[in-house]
Structures are given as structure tokens and as C-alpha cells.
Write a protein that binds this DNA or RNA. Structure first.
Lengths: 232, 232
DNA sequence: CGTGCGCTTGACTTTTTTCAATAAAGGTGG
DNA sequence: CCACCTTTATTGAAAAAAGTCAAGCGCACG
């Protein structure tokens, strides 16, 4: 009783499950499994059979693709409350990418067939899931646009402005991931990222000390991000 | 009666609506609008408010992003039976990309709110839509992988093999889009595509005459596509 | 106190794009 | 059916962007 109460409150706090009748949140609690992963641990790997999907409860994780030569492209950085690994639940059975814990994590695991039963019985749950997948498609469209239509300085500028939007209380941004991870998120390598940060500093667009970055000139960053201007 | 009968048979032939009870296909027929677009005509533009989504009935269309400098990245080439523009139905309201007819098209348009009502009442329709969005996420993950982790010869090789898989009856592939469009689909420009086709021809991997391409050495194309080898 | 990992910088290579010119192809109207 | 004109495709030379290889620094953690 104790335990399922805690589970229920975890579940009701997940955006994917907002607006669901209490009964259905309890149904979810019945099928869910709790899991933990240590920093650096694989959660699943591309090609694995997906027996269900995950929701991150605490910690931080990444979903990524790896090239044969070892280059990594991060598709998504996950924080608490975010679902991942849903694709095989509804189409095909293997994961299209890999996932790994960036810090010690707790997560919930929802087994595929029990979850599908709930979705079938439950229009609100289906609608919420459709919204989640649609938002992800939107993000992916934007990622493709960045990779194909912008060069690295533009992608970095866009990311800095995105961070600034999320951390608007602080005058100074704090990177929530290592620069190596950031380079993989932007579709480049650490050396290139480092050089561009140096150039931006030289141009007085930013000021950086370790993981903290001050945005000195957001207007020019905007122009870089939208491709109107390039970094000299 | 005549007309709605024709509509009903169109609708029942759309994979998205397979397995639905007849009643629900009739419900769909009641809310649908038929539309036609001429070659080159815009169907919608990025940022437009999405009042509903489309299913292509005949012809061919593309969904794409445009950079400020005019470079285009095609996200998807659509053929008959394929739905598009669904994202704003379930998340946000504006289109994340633009769509245009590549040839004269007929399409069905499903208005958002009436369609959502049907989805809410209809678990199978919801499941089908979840499958469609999941498959698209899979494709996007693969597109991101290609753009970020492969160079252009690898992307082209992957595309040729994909085409070969779809046209396996013929010994000779036929490009179903212009080379300019293909370059935009592969995330490059016509000059680069042309040069790489020339190199592949010189290496005797393919033989090309106009839009027809013979694959002479699929094994090496596989290696290019997976990054094990590079084009000398 | 060292060892390792993340980060930076330099020199060099490769890939791709840009710009420009030309050639080929396809459709239209005479 | 042909001539014309627009679009599409190809090629070269040069520039730019990003990646590779290698070395060195600094900081954290055991």
C-alpha cells in the first residue's frame, strides 16, 4: 500500500499522464516496473527488442546514435518526467537508437502489451501519447533543419539562446552537460566546438568560464542562429 | 450517394484507416474534404496554422524546410496513401515544415477538431495514428543519423539501395524524383550529387543514363552506406 | 600524488560549398 | 515537327567549413 501510493504520486506527476482519471493512473501503477541505472550505464541499445518504454523519474539520460567510427549524435537529452523509447511500442519492435544514463537515474518501465491495452481503453491516454510523439516529431524536424541548413556556429548560437530561455532567472548560463556531450548534441566534435566558443569569445558575443557562459550579445547570436549572419 | 461511395472506397484504401469498422470509415467520409493541387503549388507553409491534416490520394508531394539562403532540406517524399501534416493536429498548432506538390495531386483533408473527436471515440484509429507517428520518428532518427554521421557518398549509396529494395523487379533503377530534388533529400546540393554520381560511375559501382541507374556493385554500396568504406 | 579524462590549441587534410560557365533535356508554341 | 526557351545537370577552379591527428594543459578523483 505504502509503495503503490508512492508509485501513484510519481505517475500522477508525469506530464504524459496528466488529466487521466484516478482509476487509470492506478491501472498504470499496476503494470509499471521501477528501475535504476548508474551513470554511464546503458539503458537500451539500438536494435534491441523494445519490450516497453521508459519514463525518467530522476537523473539525466541521453538517446543517441553511434557511427561505426565511434562518432556520436545525441538525439535527445532527457530530464525527469520525460518518456523515451516509445517508438517500438507502436511500430516495429526494435529501438531506433540507444539510451544511456548521464547521471545516476531512476526510471519507470511500462511493458508494451499491458500499456497498449490501457491505451486502447483510454482515449485520453492515447491523445496524450499522440501529443508526445507529435512534439518529438517537431523537435526532430528542427534538429534536421539545424544539421542540414545551419553551420555549427548557428547551431551553437541557437542552443545558447535556448538555454537562456530556460534559465532566464540567471544572468549567467550554466551548461547542464559536458562540452563533449554538447558537441555530440550539436552534431560536431569537441575540437570544433571549442574553437567556435573561442571565436565567439573573441567577438565578444559571450564570456565563458568553464561551464558557465555569459551571453553578452544575444542579438548577434539570434542572427547567427537564423543564418542572417556568420561568424568572422 | 455516388460521391460518398467513391469517398468511402478511397478512405478504406488508406493504410492509416485499415482495420477500422465500416461505421467509422463512414464517419471519416463525413468530415473529409477533397482537394487538388497543381505541380509546384504550395500545400502549406511552415508556420501556418494547421487546421487539419492531409492524405495524398494521387500524385507526389514533398515536405521540406527552407533556409534563409534558399537551401532546401526535404524531410519526406509522399506518395499515394500517405498522410502528412499531422503534427499540428496533436501538438501546437503551426506546421513545423512546408509542403508542396511535385506533380498534380489529389488529397483528402481531415479537419482537426472533427478528426480528434473520431480519434477519441475510436481506439483503433488512435492506435493506427500512433503507429504512423512512430514510424515517422524512426525515419527521422535515420535521417538525422545520415546527416550527422555519414558523408554524402554514404547517404547516396543508402538511398540507391533503398530504391533497389523498392523496385526489385527491375534490373535498372529509375529515380522517381529529379536529381535536384534528390540532392535536397540527401542534404546536399546538385553539384555535389553530380560529382559523386560521376565518381561512383568511374569506380564502376553504378552506370547511369539520365534518371535510370544500374547498380553494378551492391556490395560496395552497402559498405559505403554503413561507413565501412569510402569512395576513392 | 599521480593518473585519467575533459578541454584546448595548432597544423594539416578532407569534404563540401560557392561561383561561374556550359551542356543537355524537356516542354511550348509556332 | 522543329525551334526556342526555360529548367536541369554537369564540370572546373577556388574558398570555406569541418574533421583528423597530435600535443599539452588543468582539474578532479581515487
Amino acid at each position: 500500500m505504502e509503495k503503490s501510493g508512492a508509485l501513484a504520486s510519481l505517475i500522477s506527476g508525469i506530464p504524459l499522464f496528466h488529466g487521466l482519471p484516478r482509476q487509470q493512473q492506478e491501472d498504470l501503477a499496476k503494470i509499471v516496473l521501477e528501475q535504476a541505472f548508474k551513470r554511464g550505464q546503458a539503458i537500451f541499445s539500438e536494435g534491441d527488442e523494445g519490450a516497453g518504454f521508459y519514463v525518467l523519474i530522476s537523473g539525466r539520460a541521453k538517446v543517441f546514435k553511434l557511427s561505426p567510427e565511434g562518432k556520436e549524435q545525441i538525439l535527445h537529452i532527457l530530464g525527469p518526467g520525460e518518456p523515451f523509447g516509445e517508438v517500438p511500442v507502436f511500430a516495429g519492435e526494435h529501438f531506433p537508437a540507444s539510451a544511456e544514463a548521464l547521471a545516476d537515474c531512476r526510471s519507470l518501465f511500462f511493458p508494451r502489451s499491458a500499456f497498449i491495452d490501457l491505451v486502447r481503453k483510454n482515449p485520453s491516454l492515447a491523445m496524450n501519447m499522440l501529443a508526445v510523439l507529435s512534439r518529438r516529431l517537431r523537435r526532430f524536424a528542427s534538429l534536421v533543419e539545424d544539421l542540414s541548413l545551419k553551420e555549427v556556429p548557428g547551431r551553437l548560437a541557437a542552443y545558447l539562446l535556448y538555454l537562456k530561455g530556460r534559465q532566464k532567472q540567471a544572468k549567467e548560463l550554466t551548461l547542464d552537460i559536458s562540452k563533449t556531450q554538447l558537441s555530440a548534441l550539436l552534431g560536431t566534435i569537441p575540437e570544433t566546438l571549442s574553437r567556435i566558443l573561442t571565436r565567439m569569445t573573441r567577438e565578444k558575443l559571450i564570456k565563458l568560464s568553464g561551464r558557465r557562459i555569459q551571453v553578452l550579445n544575444p542579438a548577434v547570436l539570434e542572427e547567427l542562429a537564423s543564418g542572417e549572419r556568420r561568424l568572422s
